[in-house]
């Protein structure tokens, strides 16, 4: 019996929400007209529906916007750096890369250093021989710098530039 009530409850609320098809709504209305208990259930659902659909929005205090704007102004401004700052940052990244490339091309990092672990009191053959290739490390750093340069170009120059253009359009 409870399941039957629930099924009808669902259908009645769907009817009140306007989500039943015209045929389904008509059929249900006929059923409601024919059954006193269903009619009572329908009246109850209608009452709840009308109560909930009453004055729904509440008004915040009149100074609400003012308080929010004070809080916003008091905090740090949006993380959107100026285009000029971005250009300076990009120039810095490019300059660092240029210096590194000149140094690499002059063979400053061509030497391969081997870590001397002989002074450690460990039997020979246990520790591997570690060699450090300066040129390889510099190339990795240069590649990372290049990625950083692209990110700086995108986030601090291109993105704000296109946003400004879109707003002015």
């Amino acid at each position: 019996m409870k399941d039957l009530d629930n099924t009808y409850d669902d259908r009645i609320f769907s009817l009140l929400d306007g989500t039943l098809s015209p045929e389904q709504a008509k059929r249900l209305m006929t059923e409601i007209e024919l059954s006193a208990s269903l009619k009572a259930q329908y009246e109850e659902a209608k009452l709840i529906h009308s109560m909930l659909a009453g004055p729904a929005l509440s008004d915040p205090p009149s100074n609400f916007t003012h308080v929010v704007m004070n809080k916003v102004n008091g905090s740090a401004s949006l993380a959107q750096p100026s285009i000029w700052k971005g250009i300076f940052l990009l120039c810095g990244v490019l300059l660092t890369m240029a210096i590194a490339i000149v140094l690499v091309s002059q063979g400053v990092f061509n030497e391969t250093t081997t870590l001397d672990l002989d002074h450690l009191n460990v039997p020979q053959g246990i520790l591997p021989e570690i060699s450090i290739n300066g040129k390889l490390i510099m190339n990795v750093i240069l590649a990372l710098n290049l990625i950083i340069g692209f990110i700086v170009l995108d986030r601090t120059i291109l993105k704000p530039l296109f946003t400004k253009r879109r707003v002015s359009a």
Binding site: P60, M69, N73, S77, P160, K164
Partner: peptide, 19 residues
């Protein structure tokens, strides 16, 4: 784009629902 005061318009528009 830097017009911080425009945010007040968004606040005015959505404050009743938010509240």
């Amino acid at each position: 784009a830097g017009e911080q005061h425009v945010f007040a318009e968004l606040v005015d528009k959505h404050k009743r629902y938010a509240f």
